[in-house]
């Protein structure tokens, strides 16, 4: 068996300098980056008063809060009914908002796609607008729409419809750009115009992708819709925010439970639908 002492590191280094240098430089770089990131984390935590007696007290308090939440309990039958209809309202907000946004986003997605819109300026303008819409949070949109149409679920619907245009427009544009260009070429080569190329060459190909993205968004929007009520844009968030504020924690946890069940149900349904839409096709595509 070889003894460690027999390995002449200096000689090896002389013969294969790149092994030593390369490794060392890379490791040193990585260590440096990691150290910087951790230092930044500690500084940040200090800045936000993490290392403070208050934190410890907060954690104890959090434990108490968690215990107070159990078991989930709506309080009364009337409360349960109220929550149930608020949940229906929440799902409706998400559904309507998502669908409206998708319908409005499709033409914008086409405008932003390289293989449909030739004008570089138009594409740039569309993309920047979509990015701007996207970088403003749904809650901000909700507040703005509340100022316009008043408190209530309608403001929530409009908030989703505007906010999701940004995300959908970008996703749709990417899906359209990823579409195979061969069918379009086939149609253009027969003397068909751009419109026919898009209609028959691109849209049928990307439609299942768009539909499945829409279903994903519907699911995640239902989650978001359950907090819109906290700022007054309808849905179960109103009750949830209220329950937490007045420390009716068992009711709060019951509402959270209802939301979790609703989201899980929608997840199952949308998976089924997605499968029906593209499931059979995925293997051959």
């Amino acid at each position: 068996m070889m003894n460690r002492g027999q390995i002449d590191v200096a000689a090896l280094r002389g013969r294969h300098p790149h092994h030593f240098v390369g490794l060392q430089r890379e490791q040193r770089m990585l260590a440096l980056v990691a150290a910087a990131l951790i230092a930044l984390l500690l500084l940040g935590m200090a800045y936000l008063d993490f290392f403070d007696a208050k934190t410890l007290r907060g954690i104890t308090k959090l434990g108490e809060v968690a215990i107070l939440m159990l078991p989930p309990d709506p309080g009364s039958w009337a409360h349960f009914q109220l929550y149930f209809w608020a949940l229906i309202e929440t799902i409706s907000i998400a559904l309507l908002g998502t669908l409206t946004a998708a319908v409005l986003a499709l033409p914008l997605g086409l405008l932003a796609a390289r293989n449909v819109t030739a004008s570089r300026f138009l594409r740039f303008l569309t993309r920047r607008s979509l990015d701007t819409i996207r970088s403003i949070d749904i809650l901000v949109w909700a507040l703005i729409w509340i100022s316009v149409v008043g408190l209530g679920p309608f403001a929530g619907v409009l908030a989703f419809a505007t906010s999701d245009i940004g995300s959908f427009g970008k996703l749709f544009a990417e899906a359209i750009e990823a579409a195979d260009r061969k069918p379009v070429e086939g149609i253009v080569s027969t003397g068909g115009g751009k419109l026919l190329g898009v209609r028959f060459g691109i849209l049928p190909e990307v439609f299942p992708v768009l539909a499945s993205q829409l279903l994903y968004y519907f699911e995640s929007n239902t989650r978001w819709a359950s907090v819109l009520g906290v700022v007054g844009a309808g849905g179960i968030g109103l009750q949830l925010g209220e329950a937490i504020r007045v420390l009716e924690l068992q009711q709060a946890s019951f509402i959270i439970l209802m939301i979790l069940i609703a989201v899980a149900l929608i997840d199952v349904i949308s998976n089924r639908l997605r499968f029906a839409l593209i499931g059979r096709r995925v293997q051959t595509a």
Partner: peptide
């Protein structure tokens, strides 16, 4: 002109879902 000179491609270039 494109209608007058038809093209046939190696990969057929059909719209698969139609």
């Amino acid at each position: 002109w494109r209608a007058r000179c038809a093209m046939i491609f190696q990969q057929f270039n059909l719209a698969g879902r139609l």
